[in-house]
Each structure stands twice: as structure tokens, then as C-alpha cells.
């Protein structure tokens, strides 16, 4: 459904005077999502994961440069195609209630999303009502304003806006942030149901533990790239399935495992492997060049030692 090849996002930043420097929060990122699959992109907070979602939708700010290939249904995602597809074939579930207009009633916002996905007035109203009941929201909620609903309810409304149309690819940005365990399980359950209905679901999150039971595959994001793409089942106490040392460190850092501290930085080495300076097994080769992806049947890994 969606394939991302060597995606690089760079920002131009103005420093003092006329100096300019380029930031590359995403560099050489690869992943792919199949129909009926829930792919989790895991990375530490603030590492630029959301930029991936914005790049797929073509809504990055103007001072951004995007390089590399984005393929949707096998065809390149050009800015023109992104404009035509977003809201119709590709939908975003944003992080929080802050992404809803504070002065518009929730029902109105879901209806607008339906209209934007290509439905006519009456049909849009019908679809919005259906989306509300699908997520267990009482009809009265459609009269509420965003500030009047709880975090979990806001999540359901956001899910409703994203699924009111018939999008094939749904990108959920941090679907569990700020939710207690029950609500976050519910939020992920909705996404799983979408994948089971044949949609492609891309979940961007920092919460490995919460998303693992629901994901088919996991892409591990570090230093601006996906260091490993592997089956979710490989995250288990038998670490042999994980090929990248960062993935293993991430698993070990979970409280119920050994709580091994992981001091990941968002900015990797300029030339070498982004994990090289923290990795136990790094050597001269790691510092010299970033590893190319090595393919396996269920994914790939970028490591000189895998």
C-alpha cells in the first residue's frame, strides 16, 4: 500500500546573521505497509517521527525539503497526488484534541471531514452519524465542543474524523499519549479493527509496550532512520529475533525487563551508524559509514554486525 524509500527531510534554519544550517531530522528512512497490516513506528519522543506522517500527507512546513521516494499503491506520491489523496485515501489521526477547532462542535467537524472525503451533504451527515455510533459516541456528543470531552473520548472523535471517509491508509500519530491504560487499549483496538478490515494502519508511537500486542510488524526509528523493521513477535525475552542492538536495548529498557537504561540521542553521528557511539559492539566500520539495509523475509536491519 505504502512504501517509503530512503526518505530524507531537511529543514533550513537561519542562525545568527546570514548563516544558515540544515537540520536533517529524518535521513534515509525505509518502511512499507501492506493492506490489512498494522505497522508500528517506534522511536523516542521528540525524535521527528511525526514528520514522517506529515511528509506522507504533504503537509510539512514550507522550509522543509523532502527527498527520496514515497510510493502509494505503487505510484509515486507527488505533491499533486498528495493533495488529491489526503482526506480521501490517506487519513491522519492526530495526537490530541488540540488538532480540533475549539470553536466548532464535534459533529460539525466530523461532517466536514466526511464532506472533504467526497461525500455530498446528506450522505456526509449520515456517514458522520455512523462514525459516531461506530466509536460508541452518543449522538449528544456531536453537540459538544472539543474542550468538553475527555482525552479518551477525544481520541474516539479523532478516530471518527479519520474513518468517516473510506481511506485505505490510516496514519495514527501517538494514539496512546495522555491516555490511561484502558483508554489507550481501546484506542489501539480501534486501529487493529481497521487493519483487520483490510486497511493499512501506520501507528507512530514511543510506547513500545502498549502497541506490541496489536502490531503486525515494528519499525524501530532511531537517529532519523529506521534501524530495523521486524515482526512484532520478535520482541520477546528471547532476544535472538531482534537483529539490531538498538532494538534489543529498547526492549531491555522496558520496566518489566531489566530496565537497562538507554541513553538514546536523536542526533546520530554525522557519518557513521547513528547508534555507533552508544552501541556495545561498535567498531571502526560503524563510525565510518551508515550501514545499508540488509533484507530479511519479514523486514530489514541496518547494522554492520547483524
Amino acid at each position: 500500500m505504502l512504501r517509503v524509500n530512503d526518505l530524507t527531510i531537511s529543514f533550513t534554519r537561519y542562525g545568527r546573521g546570514v548563516s544558515r544550517d540544515a537540520l536533517k531530522p529524518v535521513c534515509g528512512l525505509n518502511l512499507d505497509v501492506k493492506p490489512g497490516e498494522l505497522l508500528a513506528v517506534i522511536g523516542s519522543s521528540g525524535s521527528g517521527k511525526s514528520l514522517l506522517a506529515h511528509a506522507i500527507l504533504g503537509i510539512l512546513p514550507g522550509n522543509c525539503r523532502v527527498e527520496g521516494g514515497l510510493l502509494f499503491r505503487g505510484e509515486p506520491l507527488t505533491p499533486r497526488r498528495q493533495k488529491a489523496l489526503r482526506g480521501r485515501s490517506i487519513a491522519l489521526i492526530p495526537q490530541s484534541v488540540g488538532f480540533l477547532n475549539p470553536l466548532v462542535r464535534l459533529g460539525g467537524q466530523v461532517r466536514r471531514a466526511a464532506a472533504l472525503s467526497g461525500m455530498a451533504g446528506g450522505q456526509a451527515r449520515h456517514a458522520a452519524d455512523a462514525a459516531f455510533s461506530r466509536y460508541g459516541l452518543a449522538p449528544a456528543v456531536s453537540r459538544y465542543f472539543p474542550h468538553q470531552v475527555s482525552g479518551g473520548m477525544a481520541r474516539r472523535v479523532l478516530s471518527a474524523t479519520a474513518t468517516v471517509g473510506d481511506a485505505d491508509l490510516i496514519i495514527a500519530d501517538e494514539p496512546t499519549t495522555g491516555l490511561h491504560r484502558e483508554a489507550s487499549r481501546e484506542s489501539l483496538g480501534f486501529l487493529r479493527a481497521l487493519a483487520d478490515a483490510g486497511k493499512s494502519v501506520l501507528v507512530i508511537t514511543h510506547d513500545l509496550k502498549a502497541v506490541l500486542p496489536w502490531a503486525d510488524r515494528v519499525a524501530v526509528f532511531h537517529g532519523g532512520t529506521t534501524v530495523e523493521l521486524t515482526a512484532a513477535a520478535n520482541f520477546s525475552n528471547d532476544l535472538s529475533g531482534l537483529r539490531h542492538p538498538y532494538s534489543r536495548a529498547m526492549w531491555m529498557a522496558l520496566p518489566e525487563n531489566e530496565f537497562a537504561a538507554e541513553h538514546a540521542s536523536t542526533q546520530g553521528g554525522e557519518q557513521g551508524c547513528p547508534f555507533s557511539y552508544l552501541c556495545g559492539c561498535s567498531d571502526a566500520a560503524c563510525a565510518a559509514a551508515p550501514p545499508a539495509p540488509v533484507l530479511f523475509e519479514d523486514g530489514f536491519v541496518r547494522c554492520h554486525h547483524a
Binding site: H54, L57, I59, K83, R86, G87, R88, A91, L92, P94, S96, G98, F99, L100, N101, P102, R112, A113, L116, S117, T161
Partner: peptide
């Protein structure tokens, strides 16, 4: 704003 960004993600154009 974030909600304008989200609206854009839903396919809203500038006049919308």
C-alpha cells in the same frame, strides 16, 4: 494552528 494543519490533512484547501 494544529487544527488548520489537521484540516489540511483532511484535504481542506486554503479557502476552505
Amino acid at each position: 494552528s494544529d487544527y488548520a494543519l489537521f484540516a489540511r490533512a483532511q484535504g481542506e484547501r486554503t479557502p476552505g
